[in-house]
Write a protein that binds this DNA or RNA. Structure first.
Lengths: 216, 216
DNA sequence: GTCTATATAGGGATAGAC
DNA sequence: GTCTATCCCTATATAGAC
């Protein structure tokens, strides 16, 4: 594996673990057992490092978030869709952990990040609209905007919130599971009769997963 | 006004405007037209400054968040309650803007901040429980936990989210109004028949406020 | 490509005069 | 209480040898 790529991988890991503002170029090079000078041979500076990580994230997110607009998902796929989305964010959660600061400090990231957030709302909106059209979602038109906001807000800040409130270790997959569940809970009240059975299904799956983890 | 208090006030204003990590002790003293040395005469350092601001916030929040547990609110007061809560957070929004970082950097703040978040969830839970008992909230017991989570998450990150997504100027009162509306929207689907009229009432008030602002 | 050594800058903090 | 001067530390970044 090329040094350049190793730097990117280790940086991502450290940023996610300790938070981007708390990780220095010296920390990164030390973790890699290379000299700081070497790191600066591969990257002009910390900026370029963060920018490149963001770029990779951006490409992926763009694909994921635009998927619902390209083709209507099957009902049973919404669940899966959320998992994919959460897993992607989880991999680059450092970007969301100090989102204001990163948006301020890294000029190149500011605009595309803003676009991603807008896109997240749009994507949620599209999904709701599709469910509404399919007769699944029993909601008034003006509620959809608010609902999409709530979904996007939850998606954006879930790991942040969970991290502050619970005592989970950072690599706990339950973070993702609970995040998906939390977003789902925003939709269930609009599902009408389906809602209850849907809720039961989620809870069964939820309890099953917790059970599985416990006995692993 | 004593210098010590002026320092606190100006610090709060700068933290809120630019974000705590971007404000230095030199910035603060410069804004006050005093020397950095003078600032350090009144406060041991930036830590003590932030800690004291947080303490004031903590006292207030404690009072507000415990109110619902002390006595059941009248139905029409929930709206008002949310406004009070959002206004308090707005005054110290710098604490929420970089909440992870502040929780990491300021050891003294970590635990009480954690308690405040827990308390926020509890408070939301209590309110939901009360509405449920009063027959207003048509929800299954296990949904209340998730609902309280969503409310707390929205309350915690609203200004953050709004700030990233909209182009509002920071002193726009609409931030608070929309935040309240967003939290309310989480409850409305459970209000049954009342929900629609409630939703209409919110929207009327909302449109009225926007209209008023526009013609001020 | 990688190293060592070092420059630079900024923020936090103190000493001592007034 | 307030100021000036200054120190220290840390993080970013560069120069030049290997």
């Amino acid at each position: 594996m090329k040094t350049r790529d190793r730097i990117l991988m280790v940086s991502l890991a450290l940023f996610n673990r300790d938070g981007e503002p708390n990780v220095t170029t010296v920390d990164i090079s030390h973790e890699l057992d290379i000299s700081p000078g070497n790191l600066y041979y591969h990257f002009k500076g910390k900026d370029e490092l963060v920018n490149e990580l963001f770029e990779r994230f951006y490409e992926q997110m763009n694909l994921i978030l635009r998927a619902p607009q390209k083709q209507t998902l099957a009902t049973e796929d919404y669940w899966f869709y959320l998992i994919v989305l959460f897993e992607q964010i989880y991999d680059y959660r450092f970007l969301y952990r100090n989102i204001s600061l990163i948006s301020q400090r890294y000029e190149h990231i500011k605009r595309p990040l803003h676009r991603l957030l807008k896109l997240t709302i749009d994507s949620c909106s599209t999904v709701c609209q599709q469910m509404h059209t399919a007769g699944l979602l029993n909601t008034r038109q003006e509620q959809i905007g608010l609902l999409a906001n709530s979904m996007a807000l939850t998606i954006t800040y879930w790991f942040n919130f969970d991290n502050l409130v619970t005592e989970r270790t950072d690599d706990d997959y339950g973070m993702i599971r609970d995040g998906v569940r939390q977003v789902m809970s925003l939709i269930t009240p609009y599902l009408g009769d389906l809602g209850d059975s849907f809720l039961d299904a989620i809870n069964t799956l939820y309890i099953k997963q917790v059970h599985d983890e416990h006995h692993r």
